[in-house]
Design a protein around this nucleic acid. Structure first.
Lengths: 148, 148
DNA sequence: ATAGCTGCAAATCGTTTGCGCCATG
DNA sequence: CATGGCGCAAACGATTTGCAGCTAT
């Protein structure tokens, strides 16, 4: 791997330092490419792009670093992924609090949220069915048990 | 399988009729058990419970019927599942519109939402980091292409 | 130096599918 | 009795893991 820290390495190194990450070549490329990717790419899509610049890179490395970036707050995931599909009866209107550490889900009433959704509108041709609000944070249990 | 429609079969049959579903024994048990399951169970958890009443039931059947129930509006999924992990840069504040048919994701500015979350509060010991709002509905493309 | 990162390949996990038989309408 | 649902087992796609060698600090 060429060790040529020529082109604008500073900002990325700072970002890594700020987030407590080792600044590796693959992480830099990953980050730069994500900056230039609009939308909401999947790991496979990111991998395909990164592979053009680092042909030897592994998909596993992409996954590992995406998770790391998410964990450190550089990236965020679009909708919460609990390990598997989670369902509930389609009964009364409520939303969810999701612990970003342990993924625990708790119901929350809409009135306790301080929000006033207005469904049924058309947003640029999009027919709204409902709002799903995830309040993301750290649950009480994880706060007690936190170290890092 | 015992064909004993003794205990309170009527309400469930109506629910199936209303949603255009065939009323099978496994669907009835599945539904009754979900009614008594609080929280946000995974297919595996539902399967474990249903298996106590119908030991011969298959996990595949549980999956098929959960999807059917979701499709027909009897159940709903807790957070949107796109086929794979989706990430984005953690930059400016925005939310997403998600098509429940094709899973397409579009950004939406918070000001265009008509909702006003009030983050930063502690909700029962839960340390709020952020709100993630998914506006769920049918995108313009899918509306044109819809039949069923 | 040395802790951490990488690539590889195999393993794992959640979920889906094809198919022959059976239940429901 | 005809359609659709069921259970089974195999297939599948997405993601993770163990490990041996290499890299950043």
């Amino acid at each position: 791997m060429q060790t040529s820290p020529s082109v604008e390495t500073r900002p990325f190194r700072e970002l890594c330092a700020d987030h407590g990450l080792t600044a590796t070549h693959q992480r830099q490329v990953l980050y730069e490419i994500m900056q230039r990717m609009p939308g909401h790419p999947s790991p496979e899509e990111v991998y395909a792009r990164v592979k053009k610049r680092i042909p030897a890179i592994s998909l596993a490395t992409v996954y590992k670093n995406i998770h790391l970036f998410v964990e450190k707050g550089v990236l965020k995931e679009v909708s919460m992924h609990h390990g598997s599909l989670r369902v509930e009866l389609n009964s009364h209107l409520h939303h969810h609090m999701v612990c970003s550490r342990c993924k625990a889900i708790t119901d929350i009433e809409e009135k306790d949220l301080g929000v006033l959704p207005t469904p049924g509108r058309l947003l640029g041709g999009f027919q709204v069915e409902r709002y799903a609000i995830d309040v993301i944070g750290i649950c009480a249990a994880c706060q007690k048990a936190k170290h890092s």
